Amino acid sequence: MRKFMEIGDLSGLIRDALGPGCRVVAVDRLRGGSRKGVYRVRVDGAPAASAIVYSWAEEENFWPGRNGTDAGGPFTPVSGLAPFLAARRKLDGLGARVPRVLLADDSRRRHPADVAVVEDVPGGTLEALLESDPARAAAVLDDLAATVDVLHGHLAPRYGRPDPPEQGGTASEVPCERLVLDRALRDLEEASGRERRVAAARGRLRDRLHGLAARVSPRAAHGLVHGELGPDHVLVDADGRAVLIDIEGLMHFDVEWEHVFLRLRFGPHYPALSRPGLDPRRLDLYALAMHLSLVTGPLRLLDGDHPDRAALRGIAEHNLREALALLP
């Protein structure tokens, strides 16, 4: 049985972050995370009525067994305070709106894991706003698009994390398209062992991946991408600005990788984020690779005790259908 944070675990941490006069009155663990716990902590006696706590404790990580591929590469899962702070510094320096950090601690004295206390952005997610107030959401989408333009225009000659080199920021000389192909082939092999429909189409999917990759030409510059920029990873502040969260995967990479994810997650709202000049051949390869990743990842999570099991099955099923639809 997993043990999550409760009022007693958070009281000292919140006092250190918000002041000695504050008192924790309620704690809600927010749903959706698979590698860190996210808690809304409601308080009395502080200027803000609530704060958000991130905990990177092992109890919060729902990935069973081997939880990553590409050891040392940009697709290696990252978790912890250091990559969060590195990504936040980079984004803040480029003018992107990210939550303010009220306390960050990896000493394990306040809590037996990396932990951060950040502002509780008041306006909810862009995903919810798109449903409840499309007119207001359109302005937030415009702000998000401007932020994405800045990030994607921040070019580097090599892909990889923005961390210092000693934290894994350097990348190999393998081009992005080859990295994506190799990852997709591994996803295909794993999914074939878990889902009979993937196994039945395994040869055709493998040939399609190789064919699409062969059409991609080399590239020498890579933009800065969020990595999982869906509307659920964008909050809305009181000024109507788009606030980026779940930023630990920030990296320099082909911007087409991000645009495939944006198109998938924003659906009919994607035109506000679409841009001319994207490489259609990269988009084709990355779309199939992304769908295969979103089949394999949820199926792997289902090996463990992740609570949102119906949602995971739904993600895997949707992306399986989309992957098979891309076969000629």
Rank of each mutant, 00 (worst) to 15 (best):
F75G: 01
A310R: 10
E119D: 13
S217P: 00
G124W: 15
H233R: 12
L312T: 05
G223W: 00
H306F: 15
D120V: 10
V255T: 07
R15K: 12
D182F: 13
V148E: 10
A201T: 10
D120G: 03
A214D: 15
L126H: 02
G153C: 04
P328D: 14
R66N: 14
L250F: 06
E322W: 11
V198D: 07
D28V: 14
E6F: 09
P74K: 09
L94T: 01
S192A: 15
G267F: 10
L326H: 13
Y39K: 05
A145N: 01
T296M: 13
T76S: 10
Y286G: 03
E256C: 06
G240A: 14
R110T: 10
R158H: 00
V43A: 11
L205F: 07
R110F: 02
D308P: 01
R89W: 07
D182A: 15
G211V: 14
G123E: 12
L264N: 03
H252V: 07
E317I: 15
V295L: 14
E317L: 15
T170W: 08
A325K: 09
R282Y: 01
G72K: 15
R321G: 15
A289I: 04
P164H: 08
K36N: 11
S274W: 01
E127G: 10
V243D: 00
R313V: 14
W56A: 14
H222N: 09
P157W: 03
I7Y: 01
S50M: 13
